[in-house]
Write a protein that binds this DNA or RNA. Structure first.
Lengths: 137, 137
DNA sequence: ATCAAGTATTTTGATAACCAAACTATATTG
DNA sequence: CAATATAGTTTGGTTATCAAAATACTTGAT
């Protein structure tokens, strides 16, 4: 297998996933950053600003503003940290949870769509290879 | 194969690729948009603003500004269209070409790294599955 | 040939993302 | 307790982004 071909295929796959994700996020009325934040909080549960900023890959200053927007839209809330008065815990509101679940469902549909031409066997092999690539095996 | 597992794996793979790409682009001193534009022009060669905007997935207004920045940095240039005086052809400068080639090399290294734990056979299967997923077969 | 309609790009006006650095409030440590 | 560290916000500045208006040119129909 020439690395060149494989590289090209991976880039194309990445672009396909990327464009799907962007389309669905924009349709939902959030920016990609906002959706990313909802997704991380949805997965992590209650999380400190600082840790959330780190996971999101932005500075705390950037996150402050993004959290403001999401709080305005009632998708998340800041809860005072019980033992550290400098800190907040970020949590999803019911609306935020609902967005998160919906987005999760989109991923399932997207995956179904993506692998619809693969046999059951091929899907398993695909999963195994991705696990290996991710260093999970 | 449960779609749920596969979906999770695909999301994780996507995130891994995404973070690699972002890291390397930021290190290069360009924004992701700028790198995206260089990449598209590098692949397409001489291309009209309108077509470039479409391929990049932004409005022509957005592209005008981005092209200005890249022209300031001497990575691309506007060349008047020979037969349509409303239009420009966008091309990479030698510096732009050099950036493009370097980025391409990064993709190759990334791919090598990514599939280093796979056997030759597995790499071929992986490529075949991606081709199928992309509708190339 | 001319004039209306269409097209390519730029400009404008607004919101949002993003960073680094300064700032505020609280916590920790010597 | 004082000095230092940490969590989050604010500030000042660049860039991305869009929709809609403006500009300059092309095309099609009469």
């Amino acid at each position: 297998m020439k690395i060149k071909n494989l590289s090209q295929l991976i880039v194309e796959l990445y672009e396909k996933l990327s464009s799907w994700e962007e389309d669905v996020v924009k349709d939902s009325g959030l920016t990609t950053t906002q959706a990313h934040i909802i997704d991380i909080v949805g997965h992590s549960g209650s999380i400190k600003m600082k840790d959330l900023a780190e996971k999101t890959g932005v500075t705390t200053g950037t996150l402050t503003v993004a959290a403001d927007r999401l709080e305005e839209r009632k998708l998340l809330k800041r809860k005072p940290h019980e033992s550290d008065r400098r800190s907040y815990l970020i949590e999803l509101t019911p609306e935020g949870e609902s967005y998160f679940k919906q987005h999760h469902k989109f991923h399932l549909r997207m995956t179904e769509d993506l692998v619809s031409d693969l046999t059951e066997k091929e899907q398993e092999i695909f999963a195994g290879i991705i696990e290996k690539v991710l260093g999970k095996i």
